[in-house]
Design a protein around this nucleic acid. Sequence first.
DNA 1: TTGAAAGCGCTAACAG
DNA 2: CTGTTAGCGCTTTCAA
Lengths: 374, 374
Amino acid sequence: MLFSLSCRSVPLHSYADIHKANRKMKSPSQRKAVKAPTIKDLAKHVGVHISTVSRSLNPETRNLIGSDMVKKVLAAADELGYVPNSMASALRKGQSRTIGIVIPDLMNPIFPPFIRGIQDTLEEAGYTAFIANSDGNKDSEQLIVQKMKARIVDGLIMASAVFKNDPAIRECTKKDIPVVLINRDIEDENISAVVNDDRHGIFEAVKHLAELGHTRIAHVAGPQTTYTGLVRYRAFVEAMQTGDLIFDEYLINFAHGYSVQAGEKAFSQILDQKMDFSAVIAANDQLALGVLDSLAKAGKRCPKDLSLVGFNDMPLVDRINPPLTTLRIQHYEMGAQAARILLEELDNPKLPTRTMMLKPKLMVRKSTTKNKDH
Amino acid sequence: MLFSLSCRSVPLHSYADIHKANRKMKSPSQRKAVKAPTIKDLAKHVGVHISTVSRSLNPETRNLIGSDMVKKVLAAADELGYVPNSMASALRKGQSRTIGIVIPDLMNPIFPPFIRGIQDTLEEAGYTAFIANSDGNKDSEQLIVQKMKARIVDGLIMASAVFKNDPAIRECTKKDIPVVLINRDIEDENISAVVNDDRHGIFEAVKHLAELGHTRIAHVAGPQTTYTGLVRYRAFVEAMQTGDLIFDEYLINFAHGYSVQAGEKAFSQILDQKMDFSAVIAANDQLALGVLDSLAKAGKRCPKDLSLVGFNDMPLVDRINPPLTTLRIQHYEMGAQAARILLEELDNPKLPTRTMMLKPKLMVRKSTTKNKDH
DNA sequence: TTGAAAGCGCTAACAG
DNA sequence: CTGTTAGCGCTTTCAA
């Protein structure tokens, strides 16, 4: 009953708090209905015991029952429109065939493909998912996990894991409910994860720019509190220190969030330094859009005055002006993999955890071009 | 220092930190399954009967219990980390505080805001949602509804209702489980719906173009098997037959789906007729993108040679080339309204059904301009 | 104000 | 092969 999976306001952790939050709940309605037939009705209709019906209905135990009996039961089920009550079954079996997905925000375009990948994979295994939005809030994330557990989810896929010391995750590992991280790896717990190979992506971007003759490359980094922000930043530094590139830490600035505005602000500050550089790699597409805005305000143009590479390949960035060179992440496939791993761990809890890394693909478009000063 | 520039209020995490954390990591075998405490454990811990605990926990029945008792129980619940098993409660109460959402495809960018609106509203009432994708398939939709009912959802919000004679919907009304339609109204059943005012939107678009001097306007219509496709088409015809506009049915062509490709094909066929027109309204943004592609292939340019209006205001269409004039739908608000209506019907099953219409807003951008031939 | 007891619908031993 | 029985964890009469 205490249920609300997405929480944006005040952090609430105690049991009492949860109930307080729900006090405005409406009173239950007595909906009169043609109440759904139960297994009992079915049994009566066929003239056998309910356990016979149960066994006939379950493919795993069907072999225990005479095939003509099975046929009769199935026919009756069809006739009455019987649908088993999965709550009852879940209660009895102690597993709900439900998993929880925690993401920061469904409206962020990178998440729908993740989720679709998860859902499609889960569905084949007869599982369903609850989706909750944490809005990047550590506290609400913890509350969500609590509520997910109330729903007795069999497992969890988290895309919003805070980088380190995530209490929500600890909560799960403690109770031994399997968790798979997606898009974020965490190193202080023993948990499986599916991540994009950010390092590879950044190296690809740098290589691409280097081949175009760029040597002085700036980086609008993401918040270093996020996995992607940190990993891409580190990869950038590493990549720039190889080959004939000129690494200059003053060409790096950190955005305060993954928004267009944050990108614009961060890049403006780089621009204000009046330093020499001919290309920039943004930690994601949103930031890249901000770079574009900042550039426009400075009266400069992309790619003529500056080459730009994004990260994510969000929908429509191939049609903006100029079409953005960026790294395409296998979002859907990552979701599917995460689901697969979770399913396996559900099946065999003693399985060792693993981290799977999928490579992104550089989509070369019009926002990058040869360095003319070269 | 540049680095500090990026800090939020949260501390930075470096790899060094992580390794440090790693070293003191517990071995995986230490993960013990501590099975969640039940109400029984709680009762034992406090030394009272489970029904006392149940009553103390539930705000509705809490008044029946001594306030010091309540306090003790709550404290114990907190201490043990007790989270009630909502399956058990659902089973007992015959109501799950869960609702189902059926959409064609989560990856279609118009749906996430719908869902977020629904989720946020539901959350306040202590409800959660299951989301299922029907991929526009009538059969899978019906299957989904069946599964949802197995999950004992208390109600349903459907965005994928086939326009007419939807068996899935009939199934629900038959069983008296409340349904709210979103983005699609249905005429042969008595069901509440929340829709965008498509007619208003099309009229706004036509008016806008008329004011720019366009008189011959084409329409790339959506599939007439969909609610939006049909309603927008009809509105277009109606709008064109008022004022000084020149209506010509040969300037209308129907796309076979809501995809870019379908839009391109449909518009190419209009173009092939070599007729005179200076503007086009596409039934949605995807189709509008197709129009842009078709136009480019024909060596013409927007808005110089043709003004274009889309529908939906998808993310980033304001940044494509040219920024698309389109109609912004209140997706999030529609979702919230649908949830509100469902909640009310859940609360009071005898409530008369209603249809709510939200007005879209014309976002004038660069894809429309004055008709120079005028 | 609290306790006892009866299930919600289903599954899984254990018998026959 | 099929029936009996005992719950899963919780809510809710009905008693006390």
